[in-house]
């Protein structure tokens, strides 16, 4: 069974006076991603890659078309059901890391587990283990402001993977990093994809970064072009 399946997925925005201008951010997209794949979605600005990622992450609703995460049809799920799905089955890595500034690296990772209702002891153990895995075993008590961009993004990856999601969605994860840190981060994602078997979908506009993924999807004008 595919981990992601989209059928004729569209997302239109309306702008201008009386919403006269229709912007087709996503236009009749069909997509299927299999478990364990590492997929990159690339394209120029405005091509619809982030919109597609938002759809896959159940963060936004399509104008038309259908989308499944494994066997779960997202269309028609209410806000609470979508929140539950994101909490239990999806992991997110954002361009700006989006860590909670007042929490330490370990607490940031723990927070998602707490939302899932994991007890204090296993929560801490799993957070430490994930931070160890991303190479931050020594920095568990540091707060985001005390870490470099690359380290913060590793914490964000540990946070996204700690809950053992079916699908990891990464939105331009290396956009704010230098080339060496980017290479380290991409190697880490590749290694995690192989060792944990987590399906990864990554949006990037960086052609070098996109080649770390085993499958590359290119988008233009809201459509998949390859």
């Amino acid at each position: 069974m595919s981990i992601v399946r989209c059928e004729e997925l569209s997302r239109y925005y309306y702008q201008g006076a009386e919403n006269a201008i229709e912007v087709r951010a996503l236009d009749q997209v069909d997509l299927q991603i299999e478990p364990g794949e590492f997929v990159s979605i690339a394209g120029p600005s405005g091509s619809g890659k982030s919109t597609l990622l938002n759809m896959l992450g159940a963060l936004d609703q399509p104008t038309s078309g259908k989308i499944w995460i494994q066997d779960e049809l997202l269309n028609g799920l209410n806000k609470t059901e979508l929140a539950d799905l994101r909490l239990r089955r999806l992991g997110f890595v954002f361009q700006s890391y989006n860590l909670i500034p007042v929490l330490s690296a370990r607490e940031n990772v723990e927070f998602v587990l707490q939302l899932q209702g994991v007890g204090a002891a296993p929560r801490k153990a799993r957070a430490d283990s994930m931070l160890e895995r991303v190479g931050l075993g020594e920095l568990t008590d540091r707060r985001p402001a005390e870490m470099s961009g690359g380290q913060q993004q590793r914490v964000a990856i540990a946070r996204a993977l700690a809950s053992e999601p079916d699908l990891l969605l990464a939105d331009e994860p290396s956009a704010n990093l230098d080339s060496q840190t980017t290479a380290d981060l991409m190697n880490l994602l590749t290694e995690l994809n192989r060792s944990l078997g987590t399906t990864i979908v990554m949006v990037t506009h960086d052609t070098e970064v996109m080649h770390y993924a085993e499958r590359q999807i290119k988008m233009r004008d809201g459509k998949i072009v390859n």
């Binding site: 929140a83 539950d84 799905l85 994101r86 909490l87 989006n98 909670i100 927070f111 946070r159």
Partner: peptide, 16 residues
Amino acid sequence: TREFGTLLAMGAKPLT
């Protein structure tokens, strides 16, 4: 706002 948006994206419920 961004922090709350992130937490909501990760599956936190508004009531939480």
